[in-house]
Design a protein around this nucleic acid. Structure first.
Length: 472
RNA sequence: CGCGGGAUAGAGCAGCCUGGUAGCUCGUUUGGCUCAUAACCAAAAGGUCGUUGGUUCAAAUCCAACUCCCGCAACCA
């Protein structure tokens, strides 16, 4: 029995749960369930990132105490995770007292690699934020929102000296001590690493009040990096407790948009702390809406709640785990979703369960639940290399093969000819195979797998009154 | 010259690294079956593999140039 620790990115709570968040959770959940199936002890972290100006100002705008607002929104994510039946074990909030205290301890441990410097740039007093030189040029030196010129402002920031870790980090990524999946992202990160400057990790308190105070400097508050990224270890108790039983994480699951922070900033922090790097980071693609990037301005954002409501959780998990490729961008459309439900879940699997249950029932078959055969090398290879959508394909081809096998063995003909024992033997065999498949299905569709087990391991096989995936 | 991905049947994709009869899913057409959610099974039709040139006995596959899409860079996961 081995320990497996899995991490997901913690979403910023100034917004509602998005379909992209669901991808983090689903991928981690599949792997968590697979590892448990295999006998591992699994710890599985999720959580919310709650500090920062956006949360603060939204709360103010709505006249809600900021902590109350953060709690309310954090709860939305927690509910979302529950709705997806994610088998997490730890939920962390960056506003947790323990996290804040541990974060400060981490900062202190990193102090040999931290220095302060002045940051100067163009600043809009209306927005209360800096703009890039490019934005400055585009707007001809004048803020379009506030109609006032940008001013040159200098402020003190603390910086993390990334340069201290570049060489070691490059080696670790190159030799897969820190494995970045998929491979093409690894190459991307190696190139990016070369150009990464030192990172600003604090803001003056007057700029950013809602955050973790920098220890030893009341005028400064931590910017997102150390605060948010360190959650992966503070949730385990670092540095108060020995985390070596769980750390390094077996896998961290992130969207491609935040891979750079997890592949460069986060490992730099770990190296600074003298901690091992996560074994691997899995970067998944984005879900596109009909081939286009989802965007609030285009107005094509697909609400995960609406998807859940359409055909239920199992269909949700099915689509996003099988038809959204684990590593690259893939498309979601309502048509494709409906089609997947009808033709694959209902016709392939639902109907298979229904017809086989009926045949078993009519022929008085009592399958013996033997030990399932999990030794499919293809499936194992795909699961352990994190090609979940392909592993799911592999499971599905077994389901389709069972439908073919029923057709070719024609148990109903055997029954008609009075060859009862023959029919029972064939059906018993088929039912056993379906039970085997259902075990492989568990990480993906836990509820469906359980239903199949319940039906075919019962003393008397009863045909379900409503099929597994009823058609509208 | 910023970095990267892609262009293959009506749609969505695999094959390309390690050249040698072009494959999968859906859709379409036809047939079979009747255990099942009008579900299931089988077969057929359908492609000059983005363009042009090169290497080779042989190129979707290797090389060069070009055209067109898309992502990242730029706090919408």
């Amino acid at each position: 029995m081995s320990n497996t620790y899995l991490c997901t990115a913690i979403p910023y709570v100034n917004g509602n749960p998005h379909i992209g968040h669901a991808m983090d959770y689903l991928l981690a959940d599949v792997y968590a369930r697979y590892c448990r199936e295999r006998g591992d002890d699994v710890r599985f972290q999720v959580g919310t990132d709650e500090h920062g100006n956006k949360v603060f100002s939204t709360a103010e705008k709505n006249h809600i105490p900021v902590m109350e607002y953060a709690t309310e929104n954090s709860q939305k994510f927690r509910d979302f995770i529950e709705q997806l039946d994610i088998s997490y074990t730890d939920f962390i909030r960056t506003t947790d007292e323990d996290h804040v205290r541990r974060c400060q301890a981490i900062w202190e441990r990193l102090s040999p690699h931290i220095y302060s410097a002045d940051y100067d740039g163009w600043y809009c007093e209306g927005c209360e934020s800096f703009v890039t030189q490019k934005e400055y040029d585009e707007h001809s030196g004048c803020c379009p929102d506030h109609q006032r010129p940008y001013i040159k402002l200098t402020e003190k920031n603390y910086y993390l000296r990334i340069a201290d870790f570049k060489a070691e980090l490059r080696t670790n990524i190159e030799n897969d001590t820190l494995q970045i999946l998929p491979e093409f992202r690894k190459q991307e990160m190696l190139r990016l690493l070369e150009d990464t400057p030192d990172i600003s990790i604090s803001r003056p308190r007057k700029q950013l009040s809602w955050g973790v105070p920098v220890p030893g400097d009341d005028s400064q508050v931590m910017y997102v990096w150390i605060d948010a990224l360190s959650n992966y270890i503070t949730v385990l108790g670092y540095p108060d407790q020995d985390i070596s039983q769980w750390w390094p994480a077996s896998a961290q699951f992130v969207g491609k948009d935040i891979l750079r922070f997890h592949a460069i900033t986060w490992p730099a922090i770990l190296l600074g702390l003298g901690l091992p790097l996560p074994r691997r980071i899995i970067s998944h693609g984005h879900v596109l809406a009909d081939g286009q990037k989802m965007s609030k301005s285009i107005g094509n954002v697909v609400d995960p709640m609406a998807v859940l409501a359409r055909h239920g959780l199992e269909a949700f998990r099915y689509y996003f785990l099988r038809h959204i490729d684990t590593f690259t961008d893939s498309d979601f459309t309502w048509d494709k979703f409906d089609q997947a439900y009808t033709q694959e879940l209902a016709n392939d699997l639902g109907n298979l369960v229904q017809r086989l249950a009926t045949l078993c029932h009519k022929n008085d078959v009592h399958p013996v639940a033997g030990s399932p055969d999990l030794s499919d090398p293809n499936y194992t290879e795909l699961m352990t290399s994190f090609h979940f959508s392909k592993a799911f394909d592999c499971v599905w081809s077994k389901i389709q093969a069972l439908n073919r096998e029923i057709d070719s063995s024609k148990p109903w003909e055997l029954a008609k000819r009075g060859e009862t024992e023959q029919a029972q033997q064939v059906l018993c065999d088929l039912a056993q195979k379906l039970l085997d498949v259902s075990v492989l299905l568990r990480p993906f569709l836990p509820d469906t797998a359980r239903k199949i087990q319940d039906i075919f391991t019962a003393d008397d096989i009863i045909v379900p009154a409503t099929p597994l995936f009823p058609k509208p």
